[in-house]
Each structure stands twice: as C-alpha cells, then as structure tokens.
C-alpha cells in the first residue's frame, strides 16, 4: 500500500510542481498517473523513490515513511522502469537483469536461478539472451528486460515511468496485455505514469488525473469515464469517453445484464471474452446485423445486436 499525504514539491520557492496531493493506492493495484506533460506526474513518481526530494508532506510505503529510510535501501526495494529502458550497454542481459540482486549481495546460483525464472515470466528464452547485449535486442525485448530487471529482487512496489511510451502501437498494446498477465501472478503495487488515456484505462485499477501539479480526480477508470469530476477531466478523457469505456466491458458482462435473443442465422461467432469496443468495430467493419455469442465450449448462447450494446452502455453509465 502506498499513501500520499499532502505531498508538495516546490521549485525555487514559487512554482508548485506537485501541489498538496493526497491519495492511497491499495496493495496489489496499478495506479496510473495521467495528465498532460508538465502536470507533475513524473515528479510525483520520482518523489516515491526520492530521486526528487519532497518539499512538504509525506509518502508511506506499507506504513513506513519513505523519508525515514535510507535512500539507497529504499530504492533497492522499489522496482524502477523508465521509458528508454535504461539498460546498461556495457553489461550482458543477465548482468542487467540481476544487477539489483548483485548490489544486495546474492550468491551466484541464486542470481542465475532468478534470472531464469524472470525470463520465463516475461516470455523470453533465458539461454538465447543470457550473453547478449542490450543493443542487439529489439525495442520491445529491451523493455521486457527493463521490466524483468525491476522485478529481480522481488520488490513489493514498482514505479514505471511511461514504460511503453517509446514503442510502436502494436508492440505497445501487446506488452500492455502481457504485463497485465504478469501482474496477475506477481500482484505488485504499481505506480504507472502515462499520458495516454487509453493506456490508463487498460492498465489502471485506479487512475489519478493531474493538472498543473494538482490532483483532479482519483477513481477507477470506469468512474472517471462515466463521471468526470470536472471540465478538465472530461475534456482530457475525450468526448468519445463512452466508446472508450466499452473497452472495459466484455461480452460476458453484457450477457449477464441483458437477455440474449435466441440464435437466428449462422452469423460470425464471438467469444465471451471479447471486449465491447472490439464488438462495436466488428459491427461497423464487417457489416453484420447480429453476432452469435458462444461459450467456452463454442456452443452458441444467443445473438446480440448493436442496439444491445447501446442499451448496455446506457444502463451501466446510469448506474455508475
């Protein structure tokens, strides 16, 4: 659990880069810091591991005040991932991944085992990469290694500063999904900086939206899309926020809430796991009147139309 209490950062005694921010990130959650550049999101992130000193206020990690801890020890217990991956070009992939365990004085065998474990976790073959150097890897692979390095000493907390920002859209969405899978296993408390509302919705259990150093809204993505706290938030999330929110719901949610009509024609089949944003795009792109929902055994359960999606969206937005 990470708690921010009246956290303020003032530069040169006048500008408040971060202005009296208070909120709590529960254990095992991903909180995305979102906002335009210069809104203080990165500054706030870097205050957690004290790369930026706190001017006023306190930050607690699992009840311990960060300022009361030794700076170096604190950082070794917090995973840190940056946009440009920050891998050390002079070290092999294995040395890069195990750099924190090495600082902590682990023995060789333990480090080797941990390296293999982490590579399995991020889906890269350990033996193929062990002796290679960062510049020989693609951007996506480098970023995976960056994440593995941050997790090496199994820190309870991770800071990620636009970790997927430098990747092309296809690789980015791939890595986002992959990382969410990993998160299901490891259950870290993660602070994640982004400037991309879609990324925030995908990745966040909570989203904190900042403007000029002030916290505008801190809520689950659903609530932010349904009930923006003010003009700034609603402009920032965009006028298409209803469509964005579709990405948060799956066919299964819809089927739970609405009665599906019995199967009509043999139309295109869709699984329960498909999200409603994809469904919408299938309707528009492929020109079907209705789609057949199939369960895990591929047995048809019923069909849905575009009106069903509309109705569902309406109901959930009202109840939110």
């Amino acid at each position: 659990m990470i708690e921010f209490k009246n956290v303020t950062k003032t530069y040169d005694g006048k500008v408040n880069a971060v202005d009296d921010v208070s909120f709590t990130v529960p254990q095992g959650n991903i909180a995305v810091f979102l906002g335009p550049s210069g809104c203080g999101k990165t500054t706030l992130l870097r205050m957690v591991n004290r790369l930026v000193p706190i001017t006023k206020g306190e930050i607690f990690i699992d009840g311990e005040q960060t300022n009361s801890l030794n700076e170096i020890q604190l950082r070794r217990n917090i995973g840190y991932v940056i946009q440009s991956n920050g891998l050390f070009p002079n070290m092999t992939i294995e040395d890069n991944v195990t750099v924190v365990p090495k600082l902590l004085g682990w023995d060789k065998e333990k480090m080797r085992n941990r390296f293999f474990e982490l590579m399995e976790l991020i889906g890269l073959k350990p033996d193929d990469f062990r002796k290679r150097y960062p510049h020989e890897l693609s951007g996506g692979q480098q970023q995976r290694i960056g994440i593995a390095r941050a997790m090496a000493a199994d820190p309870p907390v991770m800071l990620m500063d636009e970790p997927f920002g430098a990747l092309d859209p296809i690789i980015r969405s791939h890595l986002q999904k992959e990382f969410l899978q990993i998160q299901k296993e490891v259950q870290k408390t993660i602070l994640f900086v982004s400037h991309d509302i879609d990324e925030a919705i995908t990745m966040g259990d909570q989203v904190a939206i900042f403007k000029d150093g002030r916290l505008m809204q801190y809520d689950a993505p659903d609530d932010i899309l349904a009930n923006p706290a003010n003009e700034f938030v609603s402009t920032f999330v965009g006028s298409d926020r209803a469509i964005k929110s579709l990405g948060l719901h799956t066919v299964a949610d819809l089927v739970n809430q609405l009665k599906v009509t019995p199967v009509a024609a043999d139309s295109r089949q869709i699984s329960l796991k498909t999200d409603l944003r994809q469904i919408l795009s299938i309707f528009f792109n492929e020109g079907y009147e209705e789609l057949v929902v199939v369960d895990e055994e591929k047995k048809p359960m019923g069909s849905i139309t575009i009106q069903d999606v509309q109705k569902y969206l309406h109901q959930t937005n009202q109840s939110a």
Binding site: I72, L74, R76, Y80, I82, V100, L103
Partner: peptide
C-alpha cells in the same frame, strides 16, 4: 537515462561510477 536508471535502482555514487 543511464545515470537515472542507476540511481533509481539503488546504486550508491561509487557503485554507479564503477559499474
């Protein structure tokens, strides 16, 4: 970025210079 990463993962100044 190298320096930032080195500090951020918890290297002391001397470790950062040496490694």
């Amino acid at each position: 970025n190298m320096r930032d990463a080195a500090k951020g993962i918890g290297m002391s100044s001397w470790e950062r210079i040496r490694m």
